[in-house]
Design a protein around this nucleic acid. Structure first.
Lengths: 122, 122
DNA sequence: CCGCATCCTGCACGATACTG
DNA sequence: CAGTATCGTGCAGGATGCGG
């Protein structure tokens, strides 16, 4: 075993956690919460128009359960809830940004590869 | 707009690309190919025992189409195929490693959060 | 305003059998 | 060895309606 072994193996738990943090909507949610600090439920809905109420709720619950965001009831009558990014969630943000930057950088290259592949098939 | 804006927005294309690269099996495949350089189809199957033949084929096709890996026929009779990591795929590896290191680091914290959350519900 | 319950649909994925 | 073809199933996720 090398001391320079900086590539951990992929265990089921790794995969499970990444699935819960990098799923279809969680990236958007984390992104918004990092940018604005704290947002109300319907503010998030408006910020991410394509998400359904059900999926947004599910994503928020998942993120909350994993400690990425904090949910706090601001007010009863009428009910007001605020979602706030947790410190550990903020630490994830750097990685997410890195991913987004990577895609932005390499998207043209990927699209060329796709065109070439699709041509070869046809 | 700030010049220091280092957080690109999440477009549909970003999401689509990430979905194709970070899916259930692609991480394993990229990981293996980066580690070993080049592998045969059945070597990959053995290296990732949980994957079905169908899903591995699909993952490899997807990665190939996006330019992440190169497929080359080494031999006919009997057929031998080699999958090799492409340069752009290798550039992804650093991010994947970063993700894995992040999960490794924060998994205990996440598990504490989960336990607490599940307690609160019960 | 926030969110759960229900129904419905498509698709991801495994299992299995077959081919060059 | 490296796939393609087909079938069956679970589950993610949208649409809709109700409740505190």
């Amino acid at each position: 075993m090398q001391v320079t072994d900086n590539a951990p193996a992929i265990t089921g738990e790794h995969r499970e956690l990444l699935d819960q943090l990098l799923d279809k909507w969680s990236l958007h949610v984390l992104d918004q919460l990092c940018e604005h600090g704290a947002l109300r439920f319907n503010e998030l809905r408006r910020a991410i128009p394509a998400v359904s109420q059900k999926s947004l709720t599910a994503a928020l619950r998942r993120l909350e359960r994993n400690g990425m965001v904090e949910r706090l009831v601001v007010n009863d009558r009428p009910v007001a809830v605020e979602y706030r990014i947790a410190p550990v969630g903020h630490s994830l943000q750097e990685l997410i940004d890195a991913l987004l930057r990577w895609t932005t950088t390499h998207l043209p290259e990927v699209e060329r590869a796709r065109a070439q592949f699709d041509d070869a098939v046809a």
